[in-house]
Amino acid sequence: MSSIPAPTSRKPAAGPGRPKDLGKRTAILEAAKNLFVNEGYGVSMDQIAAAAGVSKLTVYSHFGDKEALFSAAIRSKCDEMLPKDLFQPDLKGPLREQLLAIARAFFALVSSDEALSMHRMMLSSAQTDAPLREMFWNAGPQPTIDALVAFLRARVEAGELAIDDIDRAAHQFFCLTKGELHNRLMCGLGGRPGRAEINVHLQSTVDFFLRGYAPR
């Protein structure tokens, strides 16, 4: 009779590919954000890899292609300055304070040097085409609008606001938040507004919005 072999321990099957190095991913994103802002979309993947201190193969391994990296860089900047926690409708506190927090974060984002430079690049026909502008919109502005729509819808359902067209109201809120201060910054006029001026602008914006959509 043949002997039964003793059971042997088996190693778990290896997953598909190596786990990604989060440190390298962060370095690539930071390099991409800086280069896209300063040099436009024409920056090469070789330049991004060199700035991040990694190989071009590593960049492609993490992000697939230049379009995906550009979108990820825009999303990363938005998430950094407009964290999703701001839009949680179940947070405790007055509605006005939550809207002020969203307005402050949004204005800080759109008035940053990086955002102003990117906005100007998007408006330059020599630098960009329609697909790139659409990619930018879908990676940054649209998710931010969607988050505010969800926030406002929850507040409408709670009876704190009366809004028929919530999507339009979200666009109105962000346009009001930018206001003349952002237009002047885009044109390079008058220097940067001070904190007091920004606070007055944002508070009046939120109060105007709340008066317009107060339950009747």
Rank of each mutant, 00 (worst) to 15 (best):
D113W: 12
E134L: 09
K11W: 05
E80L: 12
G191D: 03
G194Y: 06
S204M: 15
V149K: 09
E134F: 10
N183H: 14
R120Y: 01
G93T: 09
L109F: 14
S117K: 07
T144R: 00
A50D: 13
P143E: 04
V149W: 07
A130R: 10
K33P: 07
E114C: 12
R195N: 10
L210D: 00
L152S: 00
D146C: 00
T58N: 09
H182W: 15
A115R: 02
V54Q: 06
N199K: 06
Y213K: 02
L210A: 01
R10I: 14
S117E: 10
I28V: 09
K11N: 07
D90G: 02
L57W: 14
P19D: 03
Y213Q: 05
L22R: 14
Q172G: 12
A158G: 05
E157F: 11
A14G: 08
S111H: 09
A147E: 06
E114I: 13
I145F: 12
I4T: 07
P143S: 04
K24N: 07
S111C: 08
A72R: 01
A169E: 05
E67D: 10
S112Y: 06
E80N: 07
D46G: 02
V110N: 01
A126L: 10
E180L: 14
A158I: 06
S124A: 13
I102V: 11
S61Y: 13
I74Q: 02
A50M: 11
L99G: 05
R184C: 14
A27Y: 01
R120C: 06
R168A: 15
V54A: 04
A196Q: 12
A130D: 11
V200P: 10
F63E: 03
L35P: 05
Q88M: 08
F70V: 03
N34A: 15
F107E: 06
N138K: 13
L91H: 12
D85L: 08
L185A: 10
L22F: 13
D113Q: 14
D165W: 08
S44E: 03
N183P: 05
I145W: 09
D165V: 00
V110E: 08
T205G: 07
Q172R: 12
R25G: 11
A130T: 10
L100V: 02
K56C: 01
A115F: 13
V59T: 02
S9K: 14
S3Q: 14
G17T: 04
R18F: 09
L82G: 01
A169V: 01
F107W: 10
I166T: 07
A73V: 04
V59M: 02
A154M: 03
P83H: 03
R153C: 06
A6F: 12
R184L: 15
A115Y: 11
R96A: 12
L161E: 00
L57F: 11
G190W: 09
A108K: 08
S117G: 13
N34W: 15
L57Q: 15
L57M: 14
S2T: 11
